[in-house]
Amino acid sequence: MAYNWNWGVFFQDAMFGPGTYLDWMLSGLKWTVVVSLAAWLIAFSVGSVLGVLRTTSFRFLRGVAATYVEIFRNVPLLVQMFIWYFVVPELMPKDVGRWMKTGMPMPEHTSAILCLGFYTASRVAEQVRSGIESISRGQTYAAYAMGLTEVQVYRHVLLPMGYRIIIPPMTSEFLSIFKNSSVALTIGVLELTAQSRQITEFTFQGFEAFTLATVLYIMITMTVILLMRVVEGRFRVPGFIGTGGR
């Protein structure tokens, strides 16, 4: 194949802005990590609340959480990204909408984090629910028989067990959020994939740029897996393996 290999491309001065193309890639890596971690904070907290709501004894709350999960799971992430970025400011009260469009710091990044966070929350909720449901009913009955209130049952029995059972499926959700953060490029966040694409357009060195991006994603994946292995080793309940829900 007539292709001019040039790994030195990363050390060339970039088309615009200070620094080299390698700096572009590293800045992309930084945004991938920042957006993903910030979104994970939202996903984990909102998802946990929703997952608990789906298993409570209140019919209305179960319905609210189930509706949330169905909506966020059945609309493509790309569509949700556009809705957070283009549609939400229009539907807000006038002043809030104007602030979101002109005053809000880094509107693309903020929208991407909110979108990714609330999208992943629906998936985290399903894992939390399946974790709680996989605990044998006997434990819940025993807890109630001892006189615990519903809140106490969750606090002392269901959640400590549930969270530890779902560590493996949560690992894969955590991995997904890094991959899904690439969708943020559609609203202008210059994360890792966007930067490799941009370098390809400026230099035509697609092999080099995409290879480096691929390697960096693999490194993120391996880091997360190693990290979660440590977490799992410390918290896993012997004899329980989480398979998770879809």
Partner: peptide, 9 residues
């Protein structure tokens, strides 16, 4: 371990 968008590119 890589995003679909990167595969598309």
């Amino acid at each position: 371990s890589i995003p679909l968008i990167l595969v598309i590119f």
